[in-house]
Design a protein around this nucleic acid. Structure first.
Lengths: 294, 294
DNA sequence: GTCAATTACGTTCTCCGTAAGGATG
DNA sequence: CATCCTTACGGAGAACGTAATTGAC
């Protein structure tokens, strides 16, 4: 028992026209080939589907019920293929991205604007999530890709987008405020404030030799906006990655580059290993890479 | 764009096993032929459906949505063919018959008993309907066949089952009661009672020369049971076809054959012209013919 | 006698299998 | 280097077209 979409079309054409010759034309077949095709279909079905004299062609009762089913199946087939074409041509679809809050704020607006201009019908979902949450969403397939911090992620397919420098942020009356750059050792001091231990920035910094043993009990907050306000108040200084500097653009605050070349924070674009991106996601992937390059 | 049921099976096998070699075995194909088949399907679809290295095979996101649809379609296909087989083997189905009340009472019980013994799963519907109602049901397709009285029905495909004799029914004290047979002219008399004008029996009789002009205003009832009671009461006689005699099997009643050979009532089995019977109906058709012969 | 479906037969093309090639872990 | 998918190529069978045949009105 084998039957093709063209067989179904032939069957339905004959059911509709009730005329071999005209149905054959509609299928771009010789009338003889068409007749044979119908014969094969009937053998396949095991039942006579048409009652025919040389004058009249009619569906048998069994043919009628079969025709009903075939109409449904043909419609489903068309829909399946049309859906596939739409996906392929990015006429429909969905793409979900998780990005660090800083990336979500700094890069993604432009990325999404360009993407939507090129693919207006594709639904874009953006989640601003810290590295661990982003990785978990990626693992679960809730997002197609994640932009996170961290390097050695064997779990995923990763492309490094950038290795960010860190900056000392302080008030303009701080001794280091007008320097072009400072070393991490210079920046380290009793007034150093940190983000919460759970943040990837904190964990990255904590691993640095220059900061080991320095005031583990300083002020410790969760949000960069809070940190920014504390610094502005003169309660201390902090060290943050470049992408988060927009939080610190306020009066009397200064950002001074940390010059230690070893201290770089890798921003990576991660995707699931061994899983292909959807066509919609692939386009988004390229767009993110372009943003990182430009 | 052409795709066969075997293609669908191949695609789903690969989607399931994620392994060309094993999926090929499952489809009884060489692994090479299988690979080509998948390739053709992908060309047909216009999208890569599988992500494959030599080590791993995975559905692409587009392949996943396609697989969903194909699973549904495959199930529908199987159901369609299974349903067809069931119909062909008379494992399911329905047949509807309209029959004159006399036929419904005299023949159909046996016919249906035999039919159900042979085709226990097929639903049988029997309508006891006068000729005109039966014809109308047949025209509308509400029944597959109708057993009616009347001969020249060009509208339908007809087989004459029997040409019934008529009988004079009277009480045992009637002058003709003990005759072997009588002519219609002899039977015609002032005590003749008739069925309602709408009945086919009445119309048939009314056309007979021997009865023309005889007492058009006699007693006139609708049901044979009533007529039987009137005759038994000695209120008159009547002329009825053989198949209805069971109504007159009561004490003091006699039935005498009308000998006029021209006066015969054809009982015909009618089906719609140019329309095939369902397989279930065909079997019923044969059964009715057998009953009429036996 | 004409129109229409089926059958006959030669051709074409698709599909399959064997075998070689190439990539991955 | 072993596994496994892909490509190459030749053959078998299915599908198609032309033409003759059969059947219905």
């Amino acid at each position: 028992m084998n039957i093709s979409t063209r067989d179904v079309e032939a069957f339905l054409a004959l059911a509709h026209t009730q005329h071999f010759t005209r149905a054959a034309e509609r299928c771009h077949l010789s009338q003889s080939a068409f007749s044979q095709k119908i014969g094969r279909i009937e053998v396949s079905a095991g039942v006579k589907l048409f009652e025919r004299s040389t004058r009249h062609v009619t569906l048998t009762p069994e043919g009628e019920v079969f025709a009903e089913e075939m109409r449904r199946i043909q419609a489903d087939m068309h829909q399946a293929f049309a859906g596939l074409r739409d996906l392929a041509q990015r006429r429909v679809g969905r793409v979900a991205v998780a990005a660090l809050p800083s990336v979500a704020a700094e890069w993604m607006p432009q990325v999404i604007a360009r993407y939507r201009a090129a693919n207006p019908r594709i639904k874009v979902e953006l989640f601003d999530a810290l590295a661990s949450a982003g990785m978990s969403m990626l693992r679960d397939g809730r997002v197609d890709m994640a932009i996170i911090a961290g390097e050695d992620l064997q779990e995923f397919d990763c492309r490094v987008l950038r290795r960010e420098r860190y900056f000392l942020v302080c008030r303009d009356d701080h001794p280091l405020a007008s320097r072009q750059s400072v070393s991490l050792a210079q920046a380290a001091g009793p007034d150093m404030m940190h983000l919460a231990r759970s943040s990837s920035v904190r964990q990255h910094l904590q691993a640095q030799p220059a900061l080991l043993g320095t005031h583990p009990e300083g002020l410790e907050v969760e949000h960069l906006a809070t940190l920014s306000a504390l610094v502005a108040q003169g309660l201390g200084v902090s060290v943050v990655p470049e992408l988060t500097l927009f939080h610190f653009r306020r009066e009397r605050l200064r950002a001074v580059a940390i010059r230690d070349t070893a201290l770089r924070r890798p921003i990576v674009l991660a995707r699931r290993k061994g899983r292909a991106l959807s066509i919609a996601a692939q386009a988004m992937f390229e767009e993110v890479l372009a943003q990182a390059r430009g």
